[in-house]
Amino acid sequence: MITPAAPADRKVIPMTHPAPAETVIRASHLDLTFQTGDGPVHALKDITLDIPKGAFVSFIGPSGCGKTTFLRCIAALEQPTGGSLSVNGMTPDAARRARAYGYVFQAAGLYPWRTIGRNIALPLEIMGFSKAEQQARIARVLELVELSGFEKKFPWQLSGGMQQRASIARALAFDADLLLMDEPFGALDEIVRDRLNEEVLRLWAKTDKTIAFVTHSIPEAVYLSTHIVVMSPRPGRITDIIESPLPKERPLDIRDTQDFIAIAHRVREGLRAGYEE
């Protein structure tokens, strides 16, 4: 097992663009072409983007616009075919080896044979935390997602929303500064989704993490984000980046304010423009 690189090591990794300390993700002219049986598919084209530390960035766009692919590139689950991408000043693969991020998938993907507590322990076991440390962290993240008391339950005993919260707790357990969330609430109903959105915002404010969040939903993107990246398909590219003027403190009814409606409108315009091109 390779021990996680100490933060000091970052500076010695040779970089073409020496990333400033406050930039967590830096993509420049990123390209990704899949070779499929039906010929090449241009999934990402010329993505240039800096995500500063502590930002909450949403990626929104129709299916096939490459938003999930971009997230997977950051996680080193896909290999870009052109351009450069750095995470914490490292290559994505080095960042993966350094366990620099937690990834939340669309489905909770909890192991049915492990209790909620043991599911959260899974990354901790792999990363070699001591038993006592594991217990402390499990208790802490369960409290963070308001699932204290469910540690001994099995996943099937929990509702879909609770399972997804447990999977967020699992991603938080090993204290990565970066959280990558791929449509985490896409399969949940709107009422549960509203609650979890509030909870994610609260988490973000409490933990000071950088979050990259993929979604289909305009209200979700506007409600959560400091930056909204609007993308369009064929080839997958960025059509607009909107910096949100909304305050960090956001009650649910902020969605009825003029500012909110104006941003939502701009997102919608961006999505439509991507289609008409």
Binding site: R96, Y101, Y103, Q106, G109, I126
Partner: peptide
Amino acid sequence: MQMDLMRTYY
């Protein structure tokens, strides 16, 4: 997805 999850944990 489950295999990807293990990959993200290295």
